[in-house]
Design a protein around this nucleic acid. Sequence first.
DNA 1: TTGTAGGCGTTATCAG
DNA 2: CTGATAACGCCTACAA
Lengths: 336, 336
Amino acid sequence: MATITMADVAKKAGVSKSTVSQFLNKRYEYMSEETRERIDAAINELGYQPNHIARSLKQKRTAMVGIIVSNIMHRHSTEISRSLEDFFNQHDMNAIICNADNDQEKERKYIEMLRAKQVDGLIIFPTGQNVELYQSMVKSGYPVVFMDRKVTDISVPSVIVNNREATKNAVNHLIENGHQKIAIVTELLTISTRLERRLGYMDALQESNLPILDEYMISSDIPAMAAQLKNLFSVKEPPTALVAGNDLVFLEVLKFAKANHIKIGERVGLIVFDNIPFADLVSPSVTTISQPSHEMGQKAAELLLKQINKEDVKKEDTVFECELFIRESTQSRFQY
Amino acid sequence: MATITMADVAKKAGVSKSTVSQFLNKRYEYMSEETRERIDAAINELGYQPNHIARSLKQKRTAMVGIIVSNIMHRHSTEISRSLEDFFNQHDMNAIICNADNDQEKERKYIEMLRAKQVDGLIIFPTGQNVELYQSMVKSGYPVVFMDRKVTDISVPSVIVNNREATKNAVNHLIENGHQKIAIVTELLTISTRLERRLGYMDALQESNLPILDEYMISSDIPAMAAQLKNLFSVKEPPTALVAGNDLVFLEVLKFAKANHIKIGERVGLIVFDNIPFADLVSPSVTTISQPSHEMGQKAAELLLKQINKEDVKKEDTVFECELFIRESTQSRFQY
DNA sequence: TTGTAGGCGTTATCAG
DNA sequence: CTGATAACGCCTACAA
């Protein structure tokens, strides 16, 4: 493409570059009606497209934000990403979505890359491990919002849910339905959400004076989970109910249950922490703890935009409530 | 941040900007060992970060590509996006993911926005409706790859699957299992994939000399689908098997089936066109036509990168094969 | 109301 | 090997 610039437009319209620039920035006060029309015509004829790069260089604003997602294959992450993208698009900004895969190195690389690209701000699902990097961003006043996980000792506005309480409520629901032997399965406890969910689980047991047993608390990476589940169901008193820490864990549980002919909702009650699209459509339908992804995305985007616009933003957590959707997987136990 | 530039580094190291530039571009042959070390030291001390924007302005290369997805909420799209993002990241490029929502206007806006941002190329799940825009990109030699859908009369390398044949095979599988009354449910036929799937369906019926009935071919937008399904099952001879055109349609079918106590796999066989994460884990497990998302993403990325690097790329379609995973939803019928 | 000049931070060209 | 100097395309005083 013949890369046509402001200068070309100016020449064609018989005015100077600055006037064209004024026009592009809609400062029409500074020119006659006639000039305006001439410029407009010139632009159309030439098919001129302003070069955002050049503009960014000057203005130090790229109208782009970076989003560093922990793992896009989580339904929850996809929903949030979509919500974020929507929001920024409505504000004529673009989102660069990156997958850190819960990997500290990848996260670091992305943060550096995106900052070097001068994106206006970052929304991060933090691994929690690049503390120095986080610090340096905060110190330099760079706009950042943490999503989904909190990082201790770093004052960054964060959008999270009440993982601990929500899990506690869910476990209480199981207890109320007569379950006493309840297990929880999560990925490795390297991320705050997973830890908090486990703590919520323990809270509930404690309050009901139920024993907290190590053998009922599994945390492992996905590939090793099948083996762990096997152990779990080989103990003397296998659990009668299970909390799956997220949707990927849920898949593993389903796989295991299918392979071992363990009927969900009959032999074992099940609650999943996360939205799953088919939760209410399968048989038995699955009780879930649902997070308000859309609202979380909107809120985080808003917090970031405010920082970008130099408005004051309190460095505090925004905590959303989860909702427990009770379905068949925790209710049909007493058919037996 | 005090925005520190090459000039600062140059001064500190006691050399000129150009030498620093050479250093940054790893052209070490052009300088003495000693100079190199001095520059290196200066960079570290100052914490200098190169400004990609300035570089892009000069080089006319941003190391960013745009991805315009039809609808990120499709599992298939998410998988492809992830695959694309992976690939580009490995090549030190960033992907800007945008959601066009199958909306012509949104698509247009994004294409223009991304081009204005000087992204190096575009991967588009095309609505097929912005023909002039597509043309203009082709004419100007701008790197583009179409994904998932083909657009007639536009010579852009496209990465697609054999929708028609795959659907035909799937329907044949139903016929072989004794089904004669087979319906197909898709979204509106505005997109090539949906049309081709229907054509494949018709091919199969025709070859088996089965009648092609309008009342068995539903295409409607998602909100209206429930009503259409109701009609479908109210005809004199309701279908004994169903092909769901994608994962979102599948959800509607499930909802409908659940609400009307129609047992999938018993009263009605079901095939879904798309990967669904739980397909083999639910009861009955669901027969699916699976697309190789990962490979499709890699291929498209590769095709785009080649164009960006000015290598020759044939303007032809790359067609991947789908795989039919036969599961219980199409097999248990003869339990009865 | 319009034009001129200088700069944003790099890279590239070409002398020295 | 190193250093001026001129782009890249746009924005913004300031001057006219």
